[in-house]
Design a protein around this nucleic acid. Sequence first.
DNA 1: GAGATTTGACCCAA
DNA 2: TTGGGTCAAATCTC
Length: 326
Amino acid sequence: MDEIVYGCKLARQLESSLVNLVCQPDILSRTIDEIVKTFTAAKERLHVSPHQYQVSSFSPMLPHEAFKEQDAQTGANIFTQELMRSSFTQPMDPLMIQRQQVIRSNAPFEGSERSRGSEGEVQPGQGSSLRQRRSRKNEGQKKTEVIQANQFGNPEVPPEDGFAWRKYGQKEILGSKYPRSYYRCTHQKMYACPAKKQVQRVDHNPNFLTVTYRGSHVCHISSTAPSFVPPQLLMDISQDMTQTISPRLSLHSSSVQLSLHGVGGGGGIAPAGGDAREGPSTSATYGEADMADAMFNVSGSSSGNNMEYLLLPADESEPVGEKKSS
DNA sequence: GAGATTTGACCCAA
DNA sequence: TTGGGTCAAATCTC
């Protein structure tokens, strides 16, 4: 416990001084090394086997059970298969697993099968041309993803996807247990960025969030740009390796070079219909600052990015904005 | 004080 | 008429 608390303390210090340390890579490197060592030592002391780790880290409800009914109804076999071969069967760091995305695209951006989604497909040019205000059509294509909710912290908050989102509404949805939250790009006004997303917890498996992206980013400004690790990359990591991320950090403490094979052609890379940052590059190097951000900036959006969530049971944590009584 | 969130009210497509 | 999507004032957080 002392080691964990000490590691959290170091992480907080790093978080508070991260901006200043960006120009001092040596200090940054040493700090991160210290944090990694601390947490690694604490983890080793736990003597947790992969099996135990897996059971304790996730909901008792297995994904294939949770989505069995949906799978039968929609025939979304790919979705189920992706879940089945995802991190649920592999011992991995929860912080990384959390970012792993399983894509279920109702209306893929390009060249996929037609959607059978209940929300309907947006047909370009189909909408009324008379109503410009609050028009729900002609907003571009939709892309729906199912991602794992935050294991630590507020599960309602979608994991960081590299863009800055501002919540502008929340609504109870008929027939759904959980409300739907509405987000739009923080830079909507400045850049007239039309990107929006809706986030809702999956009814029969609250550990997952349904995230629907609408519109494309035109601002190309991210909240924590360098920290954005493409979801496909994380999936590649989870599929290619069975080791945890911690040894990787230990072995490559100065920088972590990651292969991006396949990135750019697959689905679910650009959060909202293709981001200009997602080029055809085949490799990229993420520095310590990025990795630190990826490690600790797990709560997503603009709220809840603090270490407190790491210290709270998921059930007891509440979003900042929900403290007030209604 | 600026920016983010909440939430009741309003708009509008189905 | 209904319910999803959005607005905007009030409130909160930093």
